[in-house]
């Protein structure tokens, strides 16, 4: 086991996959000198050359569109959009082209590309650099949506995403770039897309979450255990496809479900999960399902205001307890 950061784990995955497959390449702004926003591309340009780690103009539509064209023409491009907020300049290309090419051309084409676009609050970057729009893309047939929570997952899931023949929206959390975790360097296998990870085993309440909230929910679960509430924590890892089987079997055991995500609660992916569970497991539920997501406000700048948007460990603990009061 080696300790490395979430961003370093991404870099390891990129490097390994680029070494393994000469058709894998990356394009985006500031990948060379800067090495990407979190250092995921650090020194890779020196190693793989300017044709495989391509510094591009600030042209999001073309970063995305070029990745699609390059995927259609036989390569496996990784489009780096820097922020999911900026990727919105290229939603047309992603939604109208990447997600549809295979289908509307009757299976003649595959679009094996990744659109990397980090989500989440990193602290003080406010309304246009902090959003978590992952639910948008789960709504689009053709796309896979990945939201890794740990360094090990960021390596394994990124490798799987690179090898996937579908267009993958790959959403790191900016706040996780510097967090450290154990990564088994010798095990270079991809982590299959669509399989959740059980973070904590418990019997009384299932909490489903992903991305940066996993760590906070895990801490809340440990505190709740001290108070005699046994929480099972599930990190979904991928939102589309989401691991319905794991969630359902956990809820069948605990009879209680809460979904926690940083994204705005209204229309968030928590709604999909809680609704599916309510629809199919209603008779097994001991209490109504609950959701926790961000307030429906733009992410504010000032420290106390930003904190007002975020979901805290304490809030999770309190809401969890409310199942039993």
């Amino acid at each position: 086991m080696t300790k490395m950061t979430y961003a370093e784990a991404a870099r390891l995955a990129l490097k390994e996959e680029m070494e393994r497959d000469s058709t894998v390449w990356a394009l985006g702004e500031d990948l060379g000198f800067e090495g990407g926003m979190g250092g995921q591309y650090k020194d890779l340009q020196a190693e793989f050359g300017i044709d495989r780690i391509v510094d591009t103009p600030i042209s999001e539509a073309t970063i995305m569109g070029a990745a699609i064209g390059a995927a259609l023409a036989g390569t496996r491009p990784i489009a780096e959009l820097r922020f999911s907020d900026f990727a919105m300049c290229a939603v047309d290309e992603l939604v109208n082209q990447a997600a549809k090419a295979r289908y509307m051309f009757g299976g003649q084409a595959r679009v094996p590309m990744i659109a990397r676009m980090p989500i989440g609050i990193r602290g003080g970057i406010a309304a246009q650099h902090s959003q978590s729009p992952e639910a948008w893309y789960t709504h689009v047939p053709g796309l896979v949506v990945v939201t890794p929570a740990t360094p090990a997952d960021n390596r394994g899931l990124l490798k799987a995403a690179i090898r996937c023949d579908d267009p993958v929206v790959y959403m790191e959390h900016k706040g996780l770039w510097g967090t450290e975790g154990e990564v088994e360097e010798n095990d270079s296998h991809p982590i299959p897309l669509g399989i959740a990870r059980k973070v904590v085993t418990g019997n009384d309440l299932t909490i489903v979450t992903w991305s940066a909230m996993v760590d906070i929910v895990e801490k809340a679960a440990l505190s709740l255990a001290d108070e005699g509430i046994s929480v099972e924590v599930i990190d979904l890892r991928t939102l589309w496809p989401w691991d319905r089987d794991s969630v359902f079997s956990s809820v069948k055991k605990t009879g209680r479900l809460m979904v926690v995500h940083e994204a705005v609660q209204v229309g968030g992916f928590g709604a999909e999960i809680t609704s599916e569970v309510s629809e199919h497991l209603f008779s097994m539920l001991k209490a109504p399902v609950k959701r926790m997501g961000g307030a429906r406000i733009p992410i504010p700048f000032s420290i106390p205001l930003e904190a007002a948007y975020m979901i805290s460990k304490e809030q999770i603990i309190n809401k969890s307890k409310s199942f039993f009061s």
């Binding site: 394009l27 391509v54 539509a61 073309t62 995305m64 569109g65 070029a66 990745a67 699609i68 064209g69 390059a70 995927a71 259609l72 023409a73 036989g74 390569t75 491009p77 290309e93 082209q97």
Partner: peptide
């Protein structure tokens, strides 16, 4: 247009 430049990059 954007798809084409990407395909050209692949070429």
């Amino acid at each position: 247009c954007t798809i084409s430049v990407g395909a050209a990059q692949a070429i």
